[in-house]
């Protein structure tokens, strides 16, 4: 049964996009050539690899992939840096306050994602909250340019994806046995040593899960770079939009999507294999 759903919601759309990526754009409905057609009663499949070659031939696409990866990696790291202390302190709270703290982490997600990003436009813009306040204090004379910069994109991504880092880390950290830390301290470890040698290694699974949950959607992010980023913020989600809507080239857009999927799935599979191996190691 789970395989049926996987087939329906993942494999079918995937295969359709894969098929389109081997076609050629045309002014027609739908706007691409047929991959499969009939000649004298025999089916003929014509696969065109030129869309993939085209992606290789223009440095724009490679640069867009690389720049998306960079933005995703940096924001994941920032999320980890901010999220770890948050998750750690929540896990150390008394159960009653802990629930309130968790609620506060999740609460913003009850508002539409789009509206929260719009709110950041209002905060960062030249005429916005931060600039007006700094000018009121007299710290700056003219507004700082924050909106439509790479920094705004990082702020947006870190803000939007922080809960996805905090929650898996919290689930992991809350299960830790505090006696381990006591034992470490009895054996002469300073608090930071105990953290590095006990807590951090034990929370590895949480760190990896959190990083995956943040990095993967961040690579394909479209809304945040579109609204907070400047025109020079190059991300693969934007390139894909452009191919699909501006160039009206569905085949090239599908090829871009296929490559993006491959770039995301390969690391996930490596990660899964590593995890499976680790499990085996524990069992034996």
């Amino acid at each position: 049964m789970p395989y049926f759903w996987l087939l329906l919601f993942f494999a079918v759309p995937f295969l359709i996009a894969l098929k389109i990526s081997f076609a050629k754009a045309a002014i027609a409905m739908p706007p691409y050539t047929d991959v499969l057609y009939w000649v004298d009663g025999f089916p003929v499949v014509k696969l065109r690899g030129e869309n993939y070659l085209y992606l290789l031939g223009d440095s724009l696409y490679i640069n867009a992939y690389l720049s998306s990866l960079k933005i995703a990696v940096v924001s994941t790291f920032l999320c980890l840096l901010l999220g770890y202390p948050m998750a750690y302190s929540i896990s150390r709270m008394a159960p009653a306050t802990r629930n309130i703290a968790l609620l506060l982490v999740i609460l913003p997600s009850w508002t539409s994602f789009l509206i929260r990003i719009y709110a950041w436009v209002g905060i960062l813009k030249p005429n916005g909250l931060i600039n007006n306040y700094l000018m009121y204090l007299g710290l700056i004379d003219s507004p700082l340019k924050m909106l439509h910069t790479p920094i705004a994109v990082y702020i947006g991504i870190v803000y939007a994806y922080l809960p996805f880092m905090v929650l898996p880390l919290y689930t992991n950290l809350v299960k830790h046995d505090h006696r381990l830390l006591e034992a470490a301290s009895d054996l002469g470890a300073k608090p930071w040593q105990a953290f590095l040698k006990v807590t951090l290694p034990l929370s590895k699974a949480g760190i990896i899960a959190g990083c995956m949950l943040v990095a993967i959607p961040a690579v394909g992010e479209f809304v945040i770079p579109e609204m907070l980023g400047g025109p020079e913020t190059l991300m693969i989600g934007r390139v894909l939009w452009q191919e699909f809507f501006n160039n009206r080239d569905w085949p090239v857009a599908s090829a871009v999507a296929m490559v993006m999927l491959a770039l995301l799935i390969i690391p996930i599979m490596i990660f899964h294999r590593a995890q499976a191996k680790e499990m085996e190691g524990k069992l034996t």
Binding site: A25, I27, D58, S59, L60, N63, A64, P231, E232, T233, L234, V239, Q242, N246, N247, R248, D249
Partner: peptide, 19 residues
Amino acid sequence: PPEVDRIFNRAWTTIKTGQ
């Protein structure tokens, strides 16, 4: 026409991103 459209949009990306 589509091929000119591609020239326009590609050039536009260069203008916007420097790529």
